[in-house]
Design a protein around this nucleic acid. Sequence first.
DNA 1: CAATGCATGTAATGCGTTACATGATTCC
DNA 2: GGAATCATGTAACGCATTACATGCATTG
Lengths: 186, 186
Amino acid sequence: MNTLSYGLLAFLAREPGSGYDVMLKIQPFWQAKHSQIYPLLAQMEENELLTSYWIKQSEKPDKKIYSITDSGIRKLKEWMYMPLPDPITRDELSMKTFCMWMTDRDNAIEIVETRKAYFTRRLESFNSMLQKIPEEKRTFGNREFYDYILVQKGIFNATAGQDWCNWVLGMLKEQQATESQVQPAQ
Amino acid sequence: MNTLSYGLLAFLAREPGSGYDVMLKIQPFWQAKHSQIYPLLAQMEENELLTSYWIKQSEKPDKKIYSITDSGIRKLKEWMYMPLPDPITRDELSMKTFCMWMTDRDNAIEIVETRKAYFTRRLESFNSMLQKIPEEKRTFGNREFYDYILVQKGIFNATAGQDWCNWVLGMLKEQQATESQVQPAQ
DNA sequence: CAATGCATGTAATGCGTTACATGATTCC
DNA sequence: GGAATCATGTAACGCATTACATGCATTG
């Protein structure tokens, strides 16, 4: 049982769904491909944390619907008391920022603009998730309270990322306007 | 050549150093163990992107110092024009937040406090890096400008993370105060 | 008529962590 | 006396991505 397995279990603890369903739901918070998810679900079914049945569909492929078992719920609750590992971030932008002095300013700007566009896309997606949570359910005591704070986690991070991009772009472009004498490495 | 390899090259493009040295420098921005780094450096040396020599030390183990070659510099510059992949974040806290409704409030608070402490540690480390960059070198045209914005990237993110923790803790503890009658101010 | 979405799965490969292996010095 | 730091490396294993495999419906 790795973190992704617990994550899948967590989504299925809310409502039953197919592998495809949970894949789409988990994507914004944990990047994982279907080829990793399907075997983990099958394995959890073998360990009796999940049960499944098939829904036959016409005009669409059949669906395998998973539901969490009592044993699965117990496992999840236990997991909530296990130590929280530090988050892992692998961002090529950090590595590229460190050697931006080797490239030209236009390229540096383009790199940061690319990342800014990414954060814009993400903020749009998080904001549309927010809209689906009614305001009266965004308080402690509702199950949706935790959906709300999770989406806000994404918004806080993406906003900070976007702020950083704008801050950097401001400095890079300001320089462009004043036509510096510094020659880029080539 | 994966991203980590390019990252190691990037650090060695600034100044020569041992595997151990680059490991320590890269850690705050890309988590990687020595067991992954040493083989990559050896591989890059075989591909003539790096050269190395041994320094014999008394009272400490000998050091293998790597330096970047012209071919290595060319490779890095090419890399700067390759498309920037989206960042990857794997944070168990996101998964646990999603099923906090299954556990007790005290446990939820402890989880978020743990993460807050992590961000505090990180901010301390980034701030001490900042202090090592003289203010007059924090402008475009200096090589240190990019060190500066990279450290700021970490600071922006850690600050956002800490803000989120405080925001969540405020809501969780507010609830605690109104539910039980007597709560000591802390 | 090519691409995308729906829907499930396996196989091969690459990336990352843990454990194994060694050994001196310094700090608590 | 035990842990941490310095310093390098290999081996085994687990996690993640890409590619292989199928097939129908819709959209541009």
